[in-house]
C-alpha cells in the first residue's frame, strides 16, 4: 500500500460538484422505471379521460342537437317584411349556421377548434408542477437518510447542493413534458401551422423557469422537515387548486373577475400560455414576451429565497 503522503490534491469545483450531485439524482430516477411511468401516467390519464370526454365543440354541433328538416316559427319572429303568418326554416341551412357559430365560439374561447388540443398542452404545466415539487422535497429524504450530513461535511459548495436539486427538477420536467407532448400528438393534438420543432427550445426554456421557481419553493418549504408525509400531503392538497386556478382547463377570459385575478398570479398560467402559443396557436410575440418576463421574475425571486433559506440552514 502506498504510504499516504498527505498531498492535498482536492480542488473542489462548483461545476463538478453540481454535476456530480445532479447526476446522482438522475441515476436514481432512471433506476426506477416504475416511478418514471407513474409520473407520466397521471397527466396521461387526465388528458385521455378529461380531454376526450369534455367534447365541448361537440356540444354545439348540429349532429348533437339533431334538428328536424323543417322548423316552423310564428310569423312575428321575422321582423321584415312584416305580415307573414308562419315562417318555415330549412333545417340543413340552420345546421350550417350553428356549425359556424360553434366554431366561432371555440375559436374565441379556446383559440382552437377542439378542446382536446386545448387541455392536452396544459398537461405540460401539470407535469412540471408535480415533478418540481417532488424533486424539491427529495431533500427531506437526503436528510432522513443521512446523505445530506455526508455531503455538507465535504468541501462542495453549499449552493451547489441546492442547485443540484433545482437542476434535477428542471431536467426531469423537460423530459417528461416531451413525453407528454408526444403522447398528446398520438392522441390527436393538432399543431398550428406556425409550429416548428425549434419552438421546443423555447418551451424547454419556459419549463426550466417554472421548475426553478417551483422546486425552490418546495426546497425552502421542506428543508427543515424530517418527514415525507407532510410535504406529500401538501402537494396533494395544492396541485388540484393550482391547476384549476390557471388556464389549463378553461380560458381565463370566461372566468369571474376574482378568479381571473388568481389566474393572473398563478405561474402555471404563463407556462401554459407559452406552450399553447408555441404549439397549437399562432405565435403571438407580445404575449410570449410578457409570459417569459413573468416566469423569469417568478424563477429569480423564488430561487433566491430558496437558496438563501437553504444555505442558511446548511451553515448553521
Amino acid at each position: 500500500m502506498s504510504s499516504m503522503k498527505a498531498v492535498n490534491d482536492c480542488q473542489p469545483s462548483f461545476v463538478r460538484g453540481l454535476w456530480a450531485l445532479t447526476r446522482r439524482e438522475l441515476k436514481k430516477w432512471l433506476n426506477d422505471p416504475v416511478m418514471l411511468v407513474m409520473f407520466i401516467l397521471q397527466p396521461f390519464i387526465w388528458m385521455g379521460l378529461l380531454g376526450k370526454s369534455m367534447n365541448i365543440s361537440g356540444l354545439f354541433s348540429a349532429d348533437n342537437i339533431k334538428l328536424p328538416p323543417k322548423i316552423s316559427l310564428p310569423g312575428y319572429a321575422i321582423l321584415s317584411p312584416p305580415g307573414l303568418q308562419e315562417v318555415v326554416l330549412d333545417g340543413a341551412v340552420l345546421s350550417q349556421i350553428l356549425a359556424e357559430i360553434s366554431s366561432r365560439i371555440m375559436e374565441v374561447a379556446f383559440g382552437v377548434a377542439d378542446y382536446f388540443s386545448f387541455m392536452a398542452v396544459g398537461m405540460v404545466s401539470m407535469i412540471v408542477t408535480i415533478t418540481a415539487m417532488f424533486s424539491g422535497m427529495s431533500i427531506v429524504w437526503d436528510r432522513r437518510l443521512g446523505f445530506l450530513d455526508k455531503v455538507i461535511s465535504t468541501p462542495v459548495s453549499r449552493t451547489a447542493i441546492i442547485l443540484s436539486k433545482i437542476l434535477n427538477a428542471a431536467l426531469r420536467a423537460m423530459f417528461q413534458a416531451t413525453v407528454i407532448l408526444a403522447l398528446a400528438y398520438l392522441l390527436g393534438l393538432r399543431f398550428s401551422p406556425t409550429f416548428t420543432p425549434l419552438n421546443l427550445l423555447w418551451i424547454y426554456t419556459a419549463i426550466l423557469l417554472l421548475s426553478v421557481g417551483l422546486s425552490s419553493i418546495f426546497i425552502a418549504f421542506s428543508i427543515r422537515s424530517t418527514r415525507m408525509e407532510r410535504p406529500i400531503q401538501f402537494v396533494n392538497l395544492i396541485t388540484m387548486p393550482l391547476m384549476f386556478s390557471s388556464n389549463i382547463f378553461f380560458p381565463a377570459s370566461l372566468m369571474p373577475e376574482w378568479m381571473q385575478a388568481v389566474v393572473r398570479i398563478n405561474p402555471l398560467t404563463y407556462l401554459t400560455d407559452i406552450v399553447r402559443h408555441l404549439t397549437i396557436l399562432p405565435i403571438d410575440v407580445t404575449a410570449l414576451i410578457v409570459d417569459f418576463m413573468y416566469l423569469s421574475l417568478f424563477a429569480a425571486v423564488f430561487a433566491t429565497i430558496g437558496v438563501v433559506l437553504a444555505w442558511k440552514y446548511l451553515t448553521r
Binding site: D9, C10, Q11, P12, S13, R16, G17, W19, A20, L21, R24, K150, V151, T154, P155, V156
Partner: peptide
C-alpha cells in the same frame, strides 16, 4: 461521488 465532491 465523494471524489467528485472533494474535487479529486
Amino acid at each position: 461521488l465523494c471524489a467528485d465532491l472533494y474535487g479529486i
